[in-house]
């Protein structure tokens, strides 16, 4: 998507990741429009394995453009229950639809209350404007 966009129904981590809650104790993670725009055309995403643990503020995967590699930071803690396998064949989804087809992993949350500490869309955009 060409234009900056930060949906209101998501929460954001200051390292440019988003969270979409799915029920009380599960969530999808991905990277924001800003992150994919900074990175440029994504050429590779290697997801973590299902069953591994991700920890809030720690990297859980890497995403690559032609000439850059970036850690993807977990916005919340939990266990990976599903990964977006389609991204291995079509990493461009991360650019084209960062909040939809470009989702990265699904996580069973260890501490759902971490959600409260994340930024709202407005707060995140304020951060970007600084």
């Amino acid at each position: 998507m060409a234009e900056a966009n930060y949906p209101d129904d998501l929460r954001y981590h200051d390292q440019h990741d988003w969270v979409r809650l799915d029920g009380d104790d599960a969530a999808l993670f991905g990277i924001t429009w800003f992150a994919q725009d900074t990175l440029g055309e994504v050429v590779f995403f290697e997801p973590p394995e299902v069953g591994t643990t991700v920890t809030k503020d720690q990297p859980y995967a890497e995403v690559e453009s032609v000439k850059a590699v970036s850690d993807v930071i977990a916005p919340m803690s939990g266990e990976v229950t599903e990964v977006n396998d389609a991204l291995s064949d079509s990493p461009e989804q991360i650019n084209e639809d960062p909040y939809g087809e470009g989702w990265m992993i699904k996580v069973k949350l260890a501490s759902p209350e971490e959600h409260e500490s994340l930024l709202t869309a407005a707060e995140y955009q304020k951060l970007l404007d600084r």
Binding site: V43, F44, E64, S65, V66, K67, A68, V69
Partner: peptide
């Protein structure tokens, strides 16, 4: 696949 290489990925 230049991201494998030292000039981009450095310590990794």
């Amino acid at each position: 696949l230049q991201t494998r290489e030292q000039h981009i990925r450095r310590e990794k």
